[in-house]
Each structure stands twice: as C-alpha cells, then as structure tokens.
Design a protein around this nucleic acid. Structure first.
Lengths: 334, 334
DNA sequence: AAATGATGTGTAACCCGTTACATATCATCA
DNA sequence: TGATGATATGTAACGGGTTACACATCATTT
C-alpha cells in the first residue's frame, strides 16, 4: 500500500487510505480551501497512521520555492564566520528555512559556481560575503540577494559595519591612553573592510599630522603573517607603543610577536583588534577590540533576505552598523 | 519564448529552439542514449544561446536524489566543528554535492526535526554529531547516515578517534615529564568522548594507584567553566602540577586560571589539551594537545557517506582514528 | 419556489525534468 | 534479399505535490 522512494508514503496513499481525493488531503495539509470537519479528522488520522510526510521536492517544483537559502562565505574556518553562520542559521531555521553552506575561498569562480548551483536548486535567496561579485553577475541574478560584512553593488542591500569609524575609534583611543607611535597591521586591501579600516587609521593618525607609511604593515588577516610582520616592524621601529590590528586574529599574532620580542602588553605595547570574535575574550591578556555587532548584523541580514523573499521589492538599505570600542586588558586603563 | 520561474529557461524552450524533442535535449544534457553529432551541436548551441540551466528540483523529483547532504552538528561556534564542516563541505562539493548546515544544540528535538526536514528534502544522506540519537529513530531512518566524532549505534558507521588511548597518551606523557599530581578537567559525561577521555585519564592514573576523585572537575567543554573550576581546584589542591583538559577550549580556560593564580605554564603547571583545534597553536604558550586528525576524519566520513549513497550496503566500519600527542610549549621539553 | 452564495469534494492540468517504449533509418550479414 | 542490430528521435508516462475548475449540496434570501 505504500509507494515511493524507500517506501516513502505519498499523498496518494493517504488519499486512498482516507477514501478521499488527493486534493482534499492537500487542502488539509495546507489548511486552505473548504474541508468538512469530519473529513479533515479522517485525513489527519490517515496521515498519522501512515506517518505521512509531504515530499518537499515535489512541492518545491510546483511552488518554485524550496524553503532553502544559500550562505556563501569565504571560509567557515575564519573565526568571524561561524558566529555569523550560527545566527543566520538560527533565524532561518525558526522561519522554516534551511541553509546551504558554501565556502568560496574568496574565489570568484567558486562563487559563480555556487551561485549557479544554488539557483538550479531553487533556493529562495542567497546571503553572500564577497569582494569580487561583479555587476554583470548580479545583473543576471534575479533572486533575492543580500551582501554581508562588506558593501556590495548599490543594487544589492548589504549589511556591514562602519569600518572607517571603528578604526578611528581604535586609533583615537590609543592616542587617548598615551600612545605616541601607533602602527597598523593591515588586512588585504582587496577586501573592502580592510581598506576602510586602514583609511580610518590613516584619517585619525593624520589629525595630528604624524602619519608614517612605514608603520603600516600587511598581515593578510592571518595571525602567522601578522606575527612575522609585527616582529620585523618592532625591530625596525622599536619605539612603536600602540598597534591597531585590522582584525582580532591578526591581533593574536601581535600578541605572540610581543612575547617573542620581550614586550608586555599593555605596559610596553598597547593593542586593539577588530571584530570582537568570541576568542578575543579568551586570550591573555584579553583583547581590547572594536566590536562588530555580529548577532545583530546576522539577524538584520536574515530579516532583509526574508523580506526580499516575501516579495518586498523595496527593502530598506540598512545603515552601516556602528562598531564600538570594547575595552579589555590589552590596553591600559585610563 | 522563455517560460518558467523568473524567466528561467526550461528544457522545452531549448527543444523548441533547437527543433528537437525534449528527450533529445535531455540525452545531450546527460550524455546518454544515441544522439547524432550534428543534432548534438545544434542542441548545445541552443543551450548556450538560451543560457539554459537544468532545473535541479525537477531532476530530483524524478531521480529521487538531490545531490545534497545534511550535516548536523551541535554548534558551528564550537571551534572543533568549523574545521570538520570545512573538510566535509570541500569533499562533497568536489563530488557535486551541496551541504545543508544544521545546528542541533545537542537537542534531541532539534535533531529529530532536522532529520525530518532533511528527509523531506530528499537529501541523499546525513552526517551527524550526536549523543542522543536513539535506536528507534535510526530504525525508521532508511537513508545513508554516518556518525561523526562519537560512536553511534552499531547499525550506523561512525568516524571518531580513540579517545581513551588519546587520554592515556596525555596522562602518560605528563607523568613522563615529571608531573606528580595530575588533575583532569572533564567534559560533560553525557558526551561519549568526554567520558572516554575521563576513562583514559583514570586508567592511566591508576597504573600507579594514585587516582583521586577530587582531582577531576567538570568544565562543561567551555573555557569559562573550566577557568573557574581550575581556580578552585588549584586552591584546594595547590600541589597539582599537571592538568589534562578534556578539550582545547577548556585548556584555554586553564591557562587563564594559571595566570590568575600566579602560576607559569609549563614551569609550575604543565597542561595538555585535546583536539588540536587550530587556535591551540596560536595561544601563548602554544598548547600541547592530543591531536585528532580532523581532516582525515572529515574525509573518511565523507567517503563513507558517499559510498553509502552510491548504494554500497556493506561499507566498512572504520577503526577509531589514532589520536597523537602534539608537543608544544605548555609542557616542558624532556 | 427560485435564486444566490457558502461549503465540500473530485478531476485533471501543471511544475520540469527523465526514460521506457515505439518507430524509423541504415548498415551488415547470412 | 530478408533478417538483425546499431543508430536516431519522438511520444507519453512518471515523480509527488498544488490548484483551477467543474460539479454537487445545503442554507439563506427574496
């Protein structure tokens, strides 16, 4: 009596069992149209007895929606993204959506490939962290799309924080607590937020006209590179007494470098990171950092995407989120 | 000329454009059956001109497969899982599969819910990290399933490492390098691997008959709890000179506790963690730990699942992976 | 009492691929 | 020369839902 994949029960089985048509069963399932109370009970009982679960694929095919979204990020191993992924998955799950995880490695081909696959799978929308998405790609893309972490083309609403402002906050605080020579460990300039953080740094430093190009070194958003870069920086410029790292992970590298070069943080060298990933509190000393409201951002992005999926064409383009200074122990108390 | 969702081109459009039947187009697409070379060229040209992408949902419905798998883990924010997720996603992607990410929070209801949803979406298989999956749940579950990180029912092949052995390794090494009083920060005993690591600890300690229940304290696999537990442990038993933490994250908590109680690692207190998550190298001192071959395990689990999906009923039940000692700076050099 | 509208249910088309089956041509072989 | 098999292509059923439309019943209105 049971047909379908692996003995999966179908709506036909239920209809036969309850002695009604499939249309009636469907009406009961979707709770729409007219169904007599008794009929409904009969159908519900059959559904339970047969342990029937409607086939989501068949439904998708007809409805042209899959209750699935794609989440494209560079790399889930980058500590910033698990937090984001978690929030997104949470919100989406509560709303009945499922999340396909895609690691692009910031590789445009991989991104394009995922976009393609996702579309064929009828995902209802995509959330993406990217630097490379080209306008022509987006043009062909008629599905709900929201950018994350980095501003995208103006045709795509994006959720990100005010990196320039955040960087200014960091640097101005370093100045405030007495740093005379503030260096910057820079992220890859191909990434918009790294550039902006650098801009904020420069901008704030230039307020008293002391900007020195040599105090900016690339750390590739990785602690190993940042560690090496910091060591050679400190060798060349031993007077550096404050460092603004482009993200927390690089700040961890700075910490290692400080230890290796015999400096104490915060006494000899004050340090501020960016992101406030959850590990930053775990380090010793705990890391003063510019906190991005990751939770809020993830929630906002999810709501935005959901709204686009619901068909709202004119969603708001959210203002950049405010990054805030989170004081911990890698800077001195004022 | 273009029909379908959002102007999506269908196989019919292509057939019409190439002046052949849909069957022929399908044959070209799937590269099976007989197709004349010239016809093929015509069809390929039409496909390109119309930028046709076959609809994966329709294909799924017929083929009863979705080229999608589910990955159910407790929480992607737990640093152990991003590494795993990354490998799995990588392998699967290369084989043409897409990964749905599910955070269960180790909550049986959530797990059951995800399992249900995934099944309805025709996922081809599921990889799961769980302590709670009951036999009756698995019985109803006719899809390819592999367990991860923890041994599951004997009906389900699982990929995990030899935790008892790993714990023994840790403790015996601590003894070897001179520790007299070795404590254990324990994970939640509801989790099989935490229990096994505790067993290994106990087993190895008992070899010289010095097991003391009071030197075992619960750290809930979290650094905050572990930190607090360690502080009170060290207060009560100041002679403790070695700690085996049930995982790396708790070891980080121990590090904080050591600093707060004025101890140097490794001089005053030697420390070994478990997992070898990538942060363990980043900490200062870098953490000596029992390394699980996360990459290999992820790959193995993926291959296993793929094999089940391909229809192999009798897959091997893999031997537990060997955990190995990774010496770093939280223990003294011998 | 006839008309109207709400209620209740079934039939069949549709979503978009895949493939079994039917049909047709052509080369090869006995 | 008729049989056989390889090649080539089309028609239609199928997968498992959803829903437009048709039809029937019943209560209410005038």
């Amino acid at each position: 009596m049971v047909t379908g994949r692996l003995g999966m029960t179908t709506i036909k089985d239920v209809a036969k069992h309850a002695q009604v048509s499939v249309a009636t069963v469907s009406r009961v399932l979707n709770n729409n149209g007219y169904v007599n109370e008794d009929t409904k009970k009969k159908v519900v009982r059959s559904i339970e007895e047969l342990n029937y679960k409607p086939n989501a694929v068949a439904r998708s095919l007809f409805k042209k929606e899959s209750k699935t979204i794609g989440l494209i990020i560079p790399d889930i191993m980058n500590p910033f993204f698990p937090e984001l992924a978690r929030v997104v998955e949470d919100v989406m799950n509560k709303r009945g959506y499922t999340v396909i995880l895609c690691n692009s490695d910031a590789n445009p081909e991989k991104e394009a490939h995922y976009l393609d696959v996702l579309k064929r799978k009828y995902v209802d929308g995509v959330m993406i962290v990217t630097n490379t998405l080209q306008q022509d790609h987006i043009k062909e893309w008629e599905l709900p799309l929201v950018g994350l972490d980095r501003p995208l083309e103006h045709t795509v609403p994006s959720v990100y924080s005010d990196n320039v402002h955040g960087a200014c906050l960091a640097v101005s605080y370093l100045k405030e607590i007495g740093c005379q020579h503030i260096a910057h460990i820079q992220g890859p300039l191909t990434i918009a937020n790294a550039k902006q953080r650098y801009q904020g740094y420069k901008q704030e430093i230039e307020k008293n006209g002391s900007f020195q190009e040599e105090l900016v070194v690339p750390g590739e958003y990785q602690w190993q590179t940042a560690e090496a870069a910091t060591i050679s920086l400190l060798k060349k410029h031993p007077y550096v007494d404050g460092i603004f790292a482009g993200n927390d992970v690089m700040a961890f590298g700075v910490m290692k470098a400080a230890i290796k070069t015999g400096r104490n943080i915060p006494e000899d060298l004050q340090l501020i990171g960016f992101d406030n990933i959850f590990m930053s509190e775990m380090m010793h000393p705990s890391l003063t950092t510019i906190s991005q409201p990751i939770d809020e951002m993830g929630k906002k992005a999810s709501e935005l995407l959901l709204s686009l999926i619901k068909g709202n064409v004119t969603v708001e383009y959210p203002k950049p989120f405010k990054a805030t200074l989170k004081k911990r122990s890698s800077t001195l108390q004022v």
